[in-house]
Computed example of a mutant assay.
Amino acid sequence: MSVQEKLLEEGLARVGYVYPPNTRYIDAFEKAQERSEKAGVGIWRLEDYATDRGFDSTRYPEEK
């Protein structure tokens, strides 16, 4: 398992910005992300935080 796949599986990252020809591991990465989404871990615990365009930090502003 790669570092990238581990981060995806733990919900610490999302798949994004993948452009040909750099698609070699995309299937494994998307499956790892699906598992973390279904488990509701990491960024997937926060509703509407992770989007297809990146992260929406306005949904969960930092508390001071």
Rank of each mutant, 00 (worst) to 15 (best):
S2W: 04
N22D: 15
A39C: 01
I43M: 14
R14K: 08
R24S: 12
E37Q: 11
N22T: 08
P21Q: 01
P61Y: 12
L46Q: 09
R45D: 00
I43F: 11
N22F: 14
A39M: 01
L7H: 03
E9F: 09
E63D: 11
T58Q: 01
E37W: 11
E63V: 03
Y49T: 00
G11N: 02
E63P: 00
P20Q: 12
E34P: 00
N22Y: 14
P61L: 05
A28T: 00
G42V: 05
S2Y: 11
F29D: 11
E10K: 06
D56P: 02
R53P: 00
Q4W: 08
T23A: 01
E34M: 06
E34H: 02
G54S: 09
S36I: 02
A28F: 02
S36R: 02
Q4M: 14
G11Q: 08
T58L: 08
L8Y: 00
A13V: 10
R45L: 02
T51D: 08
K64D: 11
V15E: 13
G42H: 03
D48A: 10
A50E: 03
E62H: 12
A32I: 00
E47G: 08
Y17R: 05
G11D: 06
F29Q: 03
Q4S: 14
R59V: 07
L12A: 15
L46E: 04
Y25A: 14
R59W: 00
P21F: 00
S2V: 10
